[in-house]
């Protein structure tokens, strides 16, 4: 009991640091300090989580953290200044990927959420769809900026919009079937694959010039998926940090679009059908 209280108190310290750090990040003089304050908050949140009673599988955790650090630090240190946006896209993508993978494991461990409350299933499946869209969308954004994928808009013309809608309906349909009680690994596979295809197809038709706004949008989506995962796992740190990113990311996306004299719907839809409005 006391340890649970300690964890919750440390989480509160972590949110306070996140919020204070973010406030710092919005001003030029305080930005560097704000970033490190937020990073300290993350350290506090990680330590608090590791104190959870009954934690085990330490070698799995150590392995993941070690590989992640070994991959993330050099990538962040070596990337050229001009290649920063695609690096952010990649980091955002792996965050979304992590959410989707955790939701998948949750599905497997709970036998299709059979004995879980409905809201756990709904929140987990929402985070699986959004996380998968964010992961694959971010990978395409990375590919375009890195010029692995053609940076000009690539689409399937008039079929684009119906196709995207169909993919969205397939993934939501799979989720609805799981919530209704069907336990089949085909459903979760169908959900993840259709969401992946949706992520790829939504970003592919968008031109390279609009990519920073799209990355910011995907960033906000990953935040929302983290918040949903927090609801499913009953973890306040995930709920608060995820939702703050979801909300501030949406505002920021809007500001970025305005600074380019564009609107978010025009950017996302710009590549869809006509594409005549795409500023390149």
């Amino acid at each position: 009991m006391t340890r649970d209280v300690l964890i919750q108190l440390l989480y509160i310290v972590a949110f306070a640091l996140f919020i204070y750090g973010l406030m710092g990040l919005t001003g030029p003089r305080t930005a560097v300090r704000g970033n490190w304050i937020a990073a300290t908050g993350m350290g506090v949140a990680v330590v608090a989580t590791l104190l959870t009673p009954g934690m085990g599988n330490w070698w799995l955790i150590l392995l993941g953290v070690a590989i992640g650090t070994a991959a993330g630090v050099p990538a962040a240190k070596r990337v050229k200044m001009t290649a920063m946006p695609q690096m952010v896209a990649l980091f955002n993508g792996v965050g979304g990927g992590a959410v989707a993978l955790i939701a998948w494991v949750e599905f497997r461990q709970s036998a299709g959420f059979a004995h879980e409350p409905t809201y756990v299933a709904v929140a987990s499946l929402f985070s699986a769809i959004v996380g998968s869209v964010s992961f694959w969308g971010s990978l395409v954004a990375y590919g375009k900026l890195q010029e692995i994928v053609a940076s000009r808009p690539v689409g399937v013309g008039k079929l684009q919009q119906p196709l995207n809608l169909a993919l969205l309906l397939v993934s939501v349909g799979c989720a609805a079937a799981v919530v209704a009680g069907a336990d089949s690994s085909w459903l979760i596979a169908g959900l993840l694959v259709s969401a992946a295809a949706l992520g790829v197809l939504v970003v592919l038709p968008i031109g390279g010039a609009d990519m920073p706004v799209v990355i910011s949008l995907l960033n906000a989506l990953t935040g929302l998926s983290a918040a949903a995962m927090g609801l499913a796992l009953d973890n306040t740190a995930l709920i608060v940090a995820g939702m703050i990113v979801g909300a501030s990311g949406t505002i920021l996306t809007n500001l970025m679009a305005k600074a380019m004299n564009r609107t978010i719907p025009a950017i996302v839809a710009g590549g869809f059908g006509g594409g005549s409005g795409t500023a390149l």
């Binding site: 934690m55 952010v88 935040g223």
Partner: peptide, 22 residues
């Protein structure tokens, strides 16, 4: 700022730690 908020949603790491650890 986009990059900073991006780092903050790395909080999903906690989800991985909890599900793996428990």
């Amino acid at each position: 700022l986009m990059s900073g908020t991006n780092a903050i949603h790395g909080i999903v790491l906690l989800g991985g730690l909890i599900v793996a650890g428990l």
